[in-house]
Design a protein around this nucleic acid. Structure first.
Lengths: 297, 297
DNA sequence: ACTTTTATTTGTCCATGACAACTTTGACGA
DNA sequence: TCGTCAAAGTTGTCATGGACAAATAAAAGT
């Protein structure tokens, strides 16, 4: 039984699967000759699974700074070659990090969760977050960029970290804490892991966290900030959103929120950008310090 | 200081905020004369906040079965009038459900979480899931449709349920359980609550759950199913995805997975649709029964 | 070597048109 | 009055081709 006829994806599904917009897919086809889907009788595009797979690789290279003209249209071999040559983090990971990383690559979900918990209890939560989890995230992110880790392995990893963190956050919850912080991401940003790490850090510092989950519309964040009487709104951005989108979102947030509510933005996507009235948090350590300053005054 | 200039959204942001595609927004404008955004000097559409708000109401009406020609283009008053007339659930909610519902409407996150935990421990997990959480979800869903509950309130509610459930799931985790189940949603389906409820139900029945979180590409689900040696894949669908999208996704999944791996699909979005080789789970009770049957053989 | 100007790249937007899938309406006979 | 089936209308999504601002790279000037 041939399975090829089932491995065709129309442009809408490809957009959802790869995160590359329909317009972009069509314009790439015209400019670079890839992807070049087959057409049905109505001239609709149908992408074979191989091309979708290749689009995933291309997306990774673009996310790590390459330009479309250099990567769209290359062969599978050339793409893989490029992925392997991506700039590596110089710092040599500790033995513990390597051990955790191996568990991730081996898809050992339960041993991984145990190891994470053990690591957290040995180091304490603060050090675990900044000295283990943050570098491990980088390691995973880079490996993912190079194609050494599959999406589902990354999902599996996120899930175990989330499980471990949510257990510890539950024990730290303090409804009388200060400052009162609303945590969420803007529409389009689905990455929840960074948010959980921020919640853990803030909770550890004695803040009162109100977690809204991911993808809250801007107007709703404003409403929530009002009814929950928060002192600040914490937003997390991964590399999934473009700098332009982030900037627009932050500007809208700043203008929609009352002046006395602060906005703290963090995550890899927000690295060097700055918007008037929005404080960019560069690390969890900075975050802890800032909470201390806030509480002192 | 006028704030109007900051309350303009371009078509891309409106698509992300409302979940209504760009093509659809443009074609509505032509056909029904709404939304009618202002244009900048380059003829790009910019939607005022009021129109985005109205689009949210319209989306709700469409999701509850209305047709665009009847709702797109109505005035704010007419929309609200329609929302209030939506078919109510006939069953009278119990006092306990009403109490929980009031806490949700009052944005009392902590009291809500406590009440949920108490309810769970009093009833037992199974009854809590099917007799409290499921009807409460319906109540919240309907109230949301009628506009009585804001998006952020729904987020707040989801978050508390997730917190309560993840704590109990952690205590039930059994890596030797059977069947081995992979849990996730397809790309485009971001609702995680149903998935958590399924995980809780399966865990309670003694299954071994491997949670992948939401939005896993089809090819990755297949890979994960192979490496984790699962017996079945459980997929959850909310009303957010259209029946057509669900059908395509399920067909692709069925053809991509080996025959011996079963597919169980559940959630409000999947109600009466059926695909060859995919079992549609209609309730958590049915789910428990099915696991029992599986374990018996 | 550093700044400024020019050229190229790139994603997103626009208009218009088409059509399959779905829903409603209307005609017809039992 | 009711169910059935065909015709008519509705709706989301896809297509083409063109445009342009923002971002990036290349070139020129100091």
């Amino acid at each position: 039984m041939s399975k090829t006829k089932f491995e065709l994806f129309n442009i809408g599904i490809v957009e959802r699967e790869t995160g590359i917009g329909k317009d972009t897919l069509r314009v790439w086809e015209k400019r670079y000759g890839f992807p070049l889907p087959i057409r049905d009788e109505r001239d609709d595009r149908f992408y074979p699974a191989e091309q979708v797979e290749k689009l995933h690789l291309i997306k990774r290279l673009l996310d790590s700074g390459m330009r479309p003209v250099k990567v769209v249209g290359l062969s599978m071999e050339e793409l893989k070659c490029l992925l392997e040559r991506l700039p590596q983090n110089q710092a040599v990971p500790s033995d513990e990090l390597l051990m955790l990383f191996k568990l991730i690559k081996a898809n050992q979900a339960n041993p991984l969760r145990l190891a994470l918990s053990r690591s957290m209890l040995q180091q304490g939560l603060g050090d675990f977050l900044s000295k283990t989890l943050t570098p491990l995230n980088h390691l995973v992110g880079e490996a993912w960029m190079r194609g050494e880790i599959r999406i589902f392995e990354e999902h599996l990893y996120s899930q175990q970290v989330t499980t471990v963190l949510s257990a510890v956050i539950a024990t730290l919850r303090d409804s009388n804490g200060s400052p009162r912080v609303l945590l969420t991401t803007l529409p389009g940003e689905a990455h929840a892991l960074g948010l959980s790490m921020v919640e853990a850090t803030l909770s550890l510092s004695g803040a009162h966290c109100i977690m809204l989950g991911v993808q809250t519309p801007i107007s709703e964040i404003v409403l929530a900030a009002n009814t929950q009487q928060v002192d600040l709104v914490a937003l997390s951005f991964s590399a999934a959103m473009t700098p332009a989108q982030i900037k627009i979102g932050l500007t809208k947030m700043r203008n929609a929120l009352p002046q006395e509510v602060a906005i703290w933005a963090g995550g890899s996507g927000v690295s060097r950008h700055l918007t008037e009235g929005v404080w960019v948090v560069k690390s969890l350590f900075e975050l802890t310090e800032a909470v201390g300053v806030w509480q002192a005054k």
